[in-house]
């Protein structure tokens, strides 16, 4: 039984109000909401897939592509914004050639934003695969990304 089925088993005969918890649990176990997962949830709840997509895109927390090996999360909260997180984000988009919510084709990099990481004193902040980086500048970010690329090319040889 795959991840979606085991989540849905916990919600037998569920109605529309169970949609958000189901989406959260599926994302929790799969890392993202795949088409197949949405199609399956759509059948289970008797709700058009488009509706589910509409609801899910309303919230920032859901992603529709799997995470990359190096997953960047940039904080876009108020404090970070004041300290220039927009320039960090711009640099991330430029270097990774990705927009928020996207994953590179080779699934090596992915990028997303969060509203606040709760570490405003250290702003601007970001995390890489859950590992926390404080007072990030665009220059610092460039170095971090380059390090990721280096480990990748080592792995290849």
């Amino acid at each position: 039984m795959n991840d979606v089925e085991s989540v849905l088993k916990k919600f037998p005969r569920a109605g529309r109000d169970a949609l958000i918890p189901i989406l959260q649990e599926v994302q929790e176990s799969m890392g993202y909401l795949s088409r197949d997962a949405v199609a399956r949830i759509s059948k289970h709840l008797d709700l058009p897939a488009t509706k589910i997509y509409g609801v899910a895109t309303f919230y920032n927390q859901f992603r529709f592509q799997p995470r990359g090996k190096h997953h960047f999360t940039v904080c876009r909260g108020t404090a970070c914004h004041v300290k220039g997180s927009n320039r960090v984000m711009e640099m991330a988009e430029k270097m990774l050639k990705l927009k928020a919510g996207e994953t590179s084709r080779d699934r090596v990099f992915s990028l997303e934003t969060v509203a606040c990481m709760g570490a405003c004193g250290l702003s601007p902040v970001m995390s890489l695969n859950g590992e926390f980086h404080a007072k990030v500048t665009p220059q610092k970010l460039v170095k971090i990304i380059q390090e990721c690329r280096e480990t990748e090319s080592k792995n290849e040889c």
Partner: peptide, 10 residues
């Protein structure tokens, strides 16, 4: 009764 289109995003 189709629901092919919907508001997406916020």
């Amino acid at each position: 009764g189709i629901g092919a289109i919907e508001f997406v995003g916020r």
